[in-house]
Design a binder for these strands. Structure first.
Lengths: 226, 226
DNA sequence: ACCTGAACACCGTTCAAGT
DNA sequence: ACCTGAACACCGTTCAAGT
């Protein structure tokens, strides 16, 4: 018994040892719970029951840590959506997977813009372009198609990340959209007539469905141009 | 003569008085010259030959200042591209205007994500949706079209803003794209075959033209769905 | 090899004190 | 009304010192 307890404790000690993986996991927890502003090296060290300096033994700096955390989240998404359907459906599934991941981890949205050679970006490009190549067409058209889809997805991701910064963590999207709609409606009708008209649709829409409508729009364009 | 000199000096004094406009103009100068990281309240105060606290008499905080600076840049773009061509051409002109503005002021790209009720965002939405409504179609389809175009534009803007942060201010885009292409080509062929294939196109392409190709792709989709 | 935590060089923001 | 600038409460990062 005493022996087992000691052994268990030793194993726990080993588990408790600092590592790049544990640091990234703790960072993800903090980011999910409190948003981008909550992740400080001091907060991270406190949660890991260590000193701030210890973090830097395993991770170059804070920005690399954020990028690595985003890579981790996106890698899970891409692995999860590896389905055996047709290219159109696969692209929709990838896009939705990213959308949902950013809904759950809004801070990932802003990380997707950093360094276009990070795994997070490469995984998205690779999976989208793999599916698009199945649709056929000349190389130049495919390149345009991939980047159009990618930038649309990044645009929505970045917007959702920014929106999350404006509300308390955990607030649902539709409540926020209603408040944006109210502000749109309050604008000067002479200056922003179309924006005011769009306010009603913004309030009532499901932005997840609408995101997918945008993907479909681009896919329709890809097929029209091909 | 002496009287004139005194009068001139007094006028200069008046011009030198701190104001929201002068602060925003100075902020734009600093941001353009040194990027987002160069704008600190201390640097701004030094350039305006005043104390840090004085800034806060005219501007709520640094984030509002950044947003106001972006509003200013975007307002100029929208005013400048007010042409009398057809809706398709007008949308291309608006999109290109924004692209070029962000090329000249990369920091604007990240500001476009903040608060979807800021003038910068409203002006873009208003001008794009005004042109799209000329193309006709049901309201719901128009809403999808506007947001698809907007998010694509925001995606490119955000990416260019982030890229600018990676290089010394003033570096041209094509040199940076070549370095990204080199990194793509260096990836594991088993893991990222499509990314590696795309590297050559990334190196050789003109990203301004390609941005426009994406706009055309979405416009084609809008017409196909309509 | 890995961890500690005080120290450093910065931030944005506030506010009593001035004019 | 507007400006000053020291002070405050934070940051990320470093590094001598420990184990």
């Amino acid at each position: 018994m005493a022996f087992m307890a000691r052994k268990t404790k030793r194993v726990e000690r080993r588990t408790d040892a600092l590592s790049r993986e544990r640091i990234i996991a703790a960072a993800i927890d903090i980011l999910d719970a409190g948003g981008e502003g909550a992740l400080t090296v001091r907060a991270l060290a406190a949660r890991l029951a260590t000193g701030s300096g210890a973090i830097y033994w395993h991770v170059a700096d804070k920005s690399e840590l954020l990028a690595a955390a985003a890579d981790e989240v996106i890698a899970r998404v891409i692995t999860a959506v590896a389905g055996g359907t047709g290219p159109r459906e696969a692209i929709r599934a990838i896009a939705l997977g990213i959308f949902d991941a950013i809904d759950a981890h809004p801070w990932v949205g802003s990380q997707l813009f950093r360094e276009p050679w990070r795994p997070a970006t490469l995984e998205i490009i690779e999976s989208v372009s793999g599916q698009l190549s199945a649709l056929g067409g000349p190389d130049a058209a495919q390149f345009n198609s991939v980047t159009a889809l990618l930038h649309y997805i990044l645009g929505v991701a970045g917007q959702n990340a920014a929106n999350a910064r404006l509300v308390a963590p955990g607030t649902d999207r539709s409540a926020f959209l209603a408040s944006v709609a109210a502000r749109w409606r309050a604008q000067d009708p002479a200056k922003y007539p179309f924006v005011r008209q769009m306010a009603a649709q913004l309030r009532d829409h499901d932005d997840r469905e609408q995101f997918l409508a945008g993907v479909d729009l681009i896919l329709a364009g890809i097929e029209a141009v091909r």
